[in-house]
Nucleic acid binder design. Structure first.
Lengths: 339, 339
DNA sequence: TTACTAAATGAAACCGCTTACATTTATCTT
DNA sequence: AAGATAAATGTAAGCGGTTTCATTTAGTAA
C-alpha cells in the first residue's frame, strides 16, 4: 500500500537508482533532479522501507541493550541515557532483561543477530564473560557500560566510572566524620566494579592507618534484602561498626532498614553511604548520602561510542572513565563518643 | 558469511523452496526430507535472516513500546512485564521515551513503521489522542496499556486497572480510619485514569455523607515536586486535611516530604495513601500504604493481547480491567481526636 | 497395469532497496 | 567542432527469504 521507490521514480520520471541516490544523499545527482525526486516523495508521502535497505546494507539502525533488569532504577537510568543518545543519532534500541542469566543473554544475542542488529550495549558483563568474548571475537560492534571485563588482549570499548575513587571518597567521607569501624557491603565478586570499590575502601582505611577487619567486608547481591540481612549479622557481631559503605543504593537502604529494625537511628547511631545515586537515594528516609555515578551520561556516551564505531569512524579499544562524586545527604553524620 | 538458505538447500540436495517450507513448519514436506534439511541446518549452523523474511512477510517480530519515561519506576515495571511476554512469544521490544510529548511520539511512530514493526503497546494515550486515533484508523495493531482513550466508536484493545475502584478503596481506607477531611492529589486531567480515580474518591466520600471540598482536590503532575508543593499549599489552607489520597506513589512521597517539612509526622498527624505500589512504596519512610496496580501483569497481558491480534487470532475491541488492591503499610493510621 | 488424485518438490517471480557497471549527457580542451 | 573527460542517469543483478504455479513423484482405485 505505501509508496515505494518505484512509485517515486515513475512520478519523478527517473530510474529507481536515482531515487535511491537521493535517499542516500549521494552527490551524483544534479540539483534539478534531486528537487524533482524530493517533490515526488513529498507528494506520495513516501517513506523508505528500512527493512529493504537493511537487506543489502546490513544495518537496521537498531541497537541491543543488555541489562539484568529494567525494573532496577540503576539500569533504568542507564537505559534512559542510552535511548536518548539513540534517538539523537537516528537509532532505536531493543531492550533485553537477562536476569543475570548467561543463557538468557546468549539467546538474546542469537535472536538479535538474526535481526541484523547493528551493535550491542552491554551492562551485564562479568569478569570473564563468555558471551562478550565471543562477540568481540566475531567482531560484532559492542560497548561495555558500567561493567568491564578482564581481558587486556581484546580490544573493546568501555565506558565505566571510577570505582576505585568512588569507594575511596565514600570511605574517606566516613573517616572524616570520625568513624573508625566501617563495614563494607559489596555486590557479586564476579562483577569487577565490586573489587574496585573494595580497593578504594581499603585504600582509604590504609591511608589513615585504620585497621582492616575482614569480618566487616562482605560480598553479596545488589539487593535490599542482602543489605538488611548482612547488616544485622554484622551489627550483632563483636566488631560492631559505626558506619557502612554499601556498594549500591539498594543495599544501603537495606542497611538503613536493618538499623531501624534493631532500634538504631541513622545517622545518630549508624552512618550509611550508598552508591549510584539513584532516585531512591532522595526518596528514602533519611535521604541517602551516596556516590553519584552519572548513569545517564554513561548511557549516552556508551551509545555514542558504539554508533561511531558502527559508522566506521573508529575502531574499538577506547576506555572512558567517568568521574564520580559524593552527594552528602542525611544518612551520614559525625561519630559522637558516647562511651 | 553466515550460511543462507541456498547453502542449506545445496547441502540437503533440495530446492530453497523446500528449505523455506521446513523453516516455516509447512506440512507439505515429507518427514524424510525435513530431517535431511534440519540436519543440514545443524551442520551449517544456519540461522534464518529475519530481515529477509520480513521483506515479504512484513513482520519483524518486534513491538514498539511507547512510554513517557523508562526512568519512572511505574513504567519500568510495565516495561518489564511487556518484555517478559515478548520473549515468551518470540518477540523483541523497542523502547520509546516520549517525555509526554506528542511530537516525539509521532516521530517514533513514523520511524518504527519504517522498520516494519509488528505493533505498538502504548502507555502514553491521552483522553483523545491524535497519534493513537491515527494508528487505529490505519489499522495498525496496537494495545493501550494503563491508559484509555475516549472513543467508543473505535475498536481498540485496552488493558487497564479498575481506577474507580482504586480511588474508592484508597479513600474508603482513610474514612475507615476516622478521617473526614481528605485531600486528593491527582495527575494530569487529560489522562483518563485521573478522572476515574477522582470518581472513586468522590464516591467514597458521598457514600459516607462526607462533604466534598473542591479546594482539597487538585490536578497536577505525577511527580514528587507536585505532591510536595500542593500538600504544603493545602496544609496551610483553612480546610487543613488529616489525610491525603495521592494518585501515584511519587506524589504521595512528595506529600510525606511536605508533612515532614512542616513538622508533621506521618501517620500520626497526616495519613497518606499512594497509588501504583511501585518499589518506592516500600523503600520510603514510613513505608507507603498504596493501591497495588499489578503493573507487570498489565504489561504481560497487554503484550499477549497484541501478539494474538498480530497473529491474526482475533480482531481488536477487547477491554481487560485488572483488579486493584490496597496494600496497607505504615503511612496511614487512625485519626485521634486531639482537639 | 493403467488412470487419476493427492502429496512433495522445484522454478521463478517478487518483497523494496542498493550498487556495480554500462550508457548517456554535459562540460571542457585545443 | 571533434575528441576527451567528467558528471548524471539508467540497467540489472543481487540481498535472503516467501510464495505462486508448474511439475514430478507417490498413493489409490478400478
Amino acid at each position: 500500500m505505501p509508496a515505494t521507490i518505484y512509485d517515486v521514480a515513475k512520478r519523478a520520471r527517473v530510474s529507481i537508482a536515482t531515487v535511491s541516490r537521493v535517499l542516500n544523499n549521494s552527490d551524483l545527482v544534479s540539483e534539478k533532479t534531486r528537487e524533482r525526486v524530493k517533490k515526488a516523495m513529498e507528494e506520495l508521502n513516501y517513506s523508505p522501507n528500512v527493512i529493504a535497505s537493511a537487506l543489502t546494507k546490513k544495518s537496521i539502525l537498531t541497537l541491543g541493550l543488555l541489562i539484568p533488569d529494567i525494573a532496577n532504577p540503576f539500569f533504568a537510568e542507564l537505559a534512559r541515557g542510552v535511548e536518548d543518545a539513540s534517538v539523537d543519532f537516528g537509532f532505536n534500541i531493543i531492550i533485553c532483561n537477562t536476569d543475570y542469566r548467561s543463557d538468557k543473554e546468549t539467546e538474546y544475542i542469537r535472536l538479535l543477530k538474526q535481526k541484523s542488529i547493528d551493535g550491542f550495549i552491554i551492562s551485564t558483563a562479568y569478569y570473564n564473560d563468555e558471551n562478550v568474548i565471543n562477540l568481540i571475537k566475531s567482531n560484532t560492534p559492542l560497548v561495555l557500560m558500567g561493567r568491564d571485563i578482564d581481558r587486556a588482549d581484546m580490544p573493546v570499548d568501555v565506558v565505566v566510572s571510577d570505582n576505585v575513587r568512588g569507594g575511596y571518597i565514600a570511605t574517606k567521607h566516613l573517616i572524616d566524620l570520625g568513624h573508625k569501624n566501617i563495614a563494607c557491603l559489596l555486590g557479586p565478586p564476579q562483577i569487577k566494579v565490586n573489587l574496585e570499590r573494595e580497593k578504594g575502601y581499603l585504600k582509604a582505611l590504609e591511608e589513615t592507618n585504620l585497621k582492616v577487619r575482614p569480618e566487616l567486608v562482605a560480598f553479596g547481591e545488589f539487593k535490599v534484602e542482602f543489605g538488611f540481612r548482612k547488616a544485622i549479622e554484622i551489627l550483632n557481631s563483636v566488631h560492631k561498626p559505626t558506619a557502612f559503605f554499601a556498594a549500591n543504593d539498594l543495599t544501603a537502604i537495606g542497611v538503613i532498614k536493618a538499623a531501624r529494625y534493631m532500634g538504631l537511628e541513622v545517622p545518630r547511631d549508624i552512618s550509611v553511604v550508598g552508591y549510584d545515586n539513584t532516585m531512591l537515594a532522595e526518596m528514602v528516609d533519611p535521604p541517602l548520602t551516596t556516590i553519584n555515578q552519572q548513569m545517564r551520561k554513561m548511557g549516552y556516551m556508551a551509545t555514542e561510542l558504539l554508533i561511531k564505531r558502527i559508522k566506521g569512524k573508529r575502531s574499538p579499544g577506547q576506555k572512558i572513565v567517568l568521574d564520580v562524586d559524593l552527594v552528602v545527604r542525611r544518612s551520614t553524620g559525625e561519630l559522637f563518643n558516647r562511651g
